[in-house]
Write a protein that binds this DNA or RNA. Structure first.
Lengths: 189, 189
DNA sequence: CCGCTCATGTAACAGGTTACATGATTTA
DNA sequence: TAAATCATGTAACCTGTTACATGAGCGG
């Protein structure tokens, strides 16, 4: 049940609606946890029922009424407890890696195409995370910000996201190059 | 349903029993997919029923009888189709990142301890993957092996695993350093 | 003699995904 | 006028996890 804690962690930055949360937990942006909108709406209700977050209705003109949630003291205590508990080891589950694992037995062309696509997605995330980091630290250097800034948590997780996507992109490009060269070598026979 | 394809991909290397598969899909070793033994035994039965793999009983002395599975032609076709289909985008779900996201609101000490643990795990995997890569390429250089070796799929995914764990370790160490320095700065006040 | 390895499962439950549903406003 | 954005959910289904179960041999 780590989704709850991910939601609590996200709400630490300030009160958000389910819809806004859904955007930060979106595939294209999420740098510390991914979840679907449906999961979030359900989890928010559960968290509120358990008293870990509290919401207030905000009536808008020309927009549906929304509910903004913030973490309660009980919620903070819960997060504290979660942080102290042993973290589950993380593991890898990626379709693309499965396909590359089978590289010697499947068509290299489609593999190359998919690696290219993944590299492009990674590139887009690298841009995004780079911008996010810059906007978080403002005109300070990274060293400066990490030493004296308040709220460095999101910055640190974003750094990991950036490095991860850089690794992704590099590996995709290297793998593409390898597959291309082998294909050409085979064609020459 | 990507577990099936992960199993098929793993069985391409040669016939394996459920137990042996379970070891390659284990947390500590899995470089392209993770799964639990129970999942694998269930999936193997399903795959056999669907004709994508075939098994043969091997009676052993002093060990229980086991079943070794290999991929059938139908299984290869299935893998081929899977590889051609668009890969699902991968996403991040990691307890430790959630905790770091909340770093500004929870105890840094326990966080540092957990980051250290994760760095150690990453270090062990780096060693393991390094050894695996060396044993796969034998006395050839990486360049050489990737150009002319047969079965480079597992090598490529292992490379990704290695880079990923290096990224993990580096980030953990950097994060520990940041948290330590901030703690000391706070103590000086 | 205790715990590990080999070898395979079942059953109950928790968690996550997909499809469906609604409805107003703004942008292209 | 079609699509995207804002805003929230329900229900059915599929997947994954946890707990439980068995049983023989081997090493310290």
């Amino acid at each position: 049940m780590a989704l709850r804690h991910a939601v609590l962690a996200a709400l630490l930055e300030g009160e958000l609606s389910g819809y806004q949360l859904a955007k930060t937990f979106d595939l294209g942006v999420a740098n510390f946890w991914y979840a679907q909108p449906q999961q979030l709406y359900a989890e928010l209700n559960r968290l509120e029922k358990d008293g870990l977050i509290a919401g207030r209705e905000v009536v808008q003109e020309a927009r549906p009424t929304k509910r903004l949630f913030h973490v309660t003291d009980a919620g903070l205590a819960e997060l504290e407890a979660f942080s102290a508990a042993a973290a589950k080891p993380s593991f890898v589950r990626d379709d693309l890696l499965v396909k590359v694992q089978a590289a010697d037995h499947v068509d290299p062309q489609t593999l190359i195409a998919q690696l290219g696509e993944r590299a492009a997605v990674a590139g887009a995330k690298i841009d995004l995370f780079g911008k996010l980091l810059r906007s978080m630290r403002g005109d300070r250097t990274e060293e400066e910000f990490l030493r004296h800034g308040d709220r460095i948590g999101p910055y640190l997780t974003c750094m990991r996201g950036l490095a991860f996507e850089e690794g992704n992109r590099d590996w995709c490009e290297r793998t593409i190059a390898v597959l291309r060269e082998r294909r050409q070598a085979r064609d020459r026979l």
